[in-house]
Simulated assay, not measured.
Amino acid sequence: MAAALADRRLRHRHGADRISELPNDLLHQILHRVTSTPAAALTRVLSRRWRRLWADLTELRLDSVLAPVPGIGTDDGALDACCVPTVTRLSVFLDHLPPWDSGLSADRVAPWLRFASWRVAGDLCILLPPAATGGAVVVEEDLRLPVCERVTEITLWLGYRFRLRMPAAGMFAVLTYVNIRDARMDSRELEEFVSCGCPRLEELAVRLPPFLTESVVCIRSDSLRRLDFHIKNTRRLEVAAPGLERLSMSNADKAYITAPELGEIAWEDDTFKPLRHQFTETGRHLRRLVLTLSSTTAELLQRFDTVDQLIVDILIPHIHTCGFGGGRWLQELLGECGHASLL
């Protein structure tokens, strides 16, 4: 009672606090626009009215692991204080920080994933800074991804810190988008995750160092529409996706693609080793083809009769040593394309 009386006297002395008199829905919209949950938590000092407002936010953005916030401690304190049963977005944005190793063990990151598995019905995004290793791959320990039944999008950029272990069982029932970078994975676990655990997955993007185990992976999915596959030293990639429309890939020695709806390909390999790849049950026409001008280019183009748009990344020192006639071959190629753009 005394605190409430003091608040009224303060408002009387300095004028009415009209912002605090707004409905909770409007105040939550104001706090959402702050974009940082720890920063929003600082509003708790404004008055008793604001003390718990930030804890009812349904979108959490954590970006101050290195800078504890007065009143809540670290980002873990913000998650512990969250009062709503369902969060539509959890983002941990640390990729803007310089390379940093202290405090980012699996025990530090795992609670964020567990919180997502319990409370998030929407997007999960964790972006970590790179490990301070000068670019070398240094694996610290296992980081397990729990089953997230209500998460629709997962983005994990892990800075070459962890072996990401996928759940042995369980269904990501509404997951449609996955983007994983800079973490080691087991090829079999990736297979099971995509082919058995994600019945509604539409987009998969993986850009990783070499697999932990045998570098052979088979992806089967009836729902997949776009695949970006860039995992170093992949010995063989098999894809069976009847709805696949866009494929971007590199680093696979062999590729076997079954995708009758395939219309766009981005082939990023610029190596000169002979690649072996087969496109079965695919059409002979592409809407868009992006590739590097290398010894593999001619072989790839033989798989298709027409291309509406061709984008070629030309490596100038190699254009006369590619073994297929250099500029003359390129001119003949462009003459058969509906549209071509050279980048």
Rank of each mutant, 00 (worst) to 15 (best):
L143C: 08
G103I: 09
V109L: 07
W157M: 03
R119C: 04
A110D: 10
P146W: 08
G122S: 14
S105H: 05
L97H: 03
L143S: 06
H96Y: 11
T152V: 13
L113K: 01
P130F: 10
P98Y: 03
L104R: 05
I154K: 09
R165A: 15
L128K: 04
F93G: 07
D101A: 08
A121V: 05
W157C: 04
V138E: 14
P98Q: 03
D107G: 13
D107L: 04
R161W: 11
D142V: 10
R144V: 08
L158C: 01
M166V: 07
A121Q: 07
A132M: 15
R119V: 04
T152D: 10
R144P: 05
R150G: 11
T86S: 09
V139M: 10
R119F: 07
L156F: 09
R119W: 05
P99A: 05
L164A: 07
I154W: 01
D95K: 04
L113E: 02
R161K: 15
R163T: 07
D142S: 08
P99Q: 06
F115Q: 01
D123Q: 15
A131K: 11
E140I: 02
Y160M: 04
G159M: 01
V92K: 00
P111L: 10
D101Y: 02
L158Q: 00
M166A: 15
V147Y: 12
E153I: 02
D95I: 05
G135A: 09
S105A: 09
L124K: 04
T88L: 08
R150Q: 15
A136H: 13
A121N: 12
P146V: 07
R161S: 06
R150F: 13
R144G: 06
C148D: 05
P111F: 06
S102Y: 14
R114T: 12
G122R: 11
C125R: 09
V139T: 15
F115R: 06
G103P: 11
W112Y: 11
V92G: 00
G103D: 06
W118G: 05
V92L: 07
L158N: 00
A132S: 13
L128Q: 03
A168L: 12
F162W: 12
V109E: 00
I126D: 00
T86M: 14
P130S: 10
W118S: 03
L113N: 02
L97W: 03
L156N: 04
D123W: 05
H96R: 08
A116L: 01
T133V: 08
A136D: 12
R161M: 10
F115V: 01
P99R: 08
A106P: 00
H96Q: 08
S91P: 01
L127T: 14
L156E: 02
P129K: 07
F162Y: 14
S117V: 03
V138R: 15
V139E: 11
S102V: 10
S91A: 08
D123A: 12
R165Q: 15
V151R: 08
L97E: 11
A132I: 11
D142Q: 11
E153T: 15
R108C: 09
L145Y: 07
A131H: 07
D107I: 07
M166Q: 04
D101L: 02
L145Q: 02
L104Y: 07
G103L: 13
E153N: 12
P99H: 13
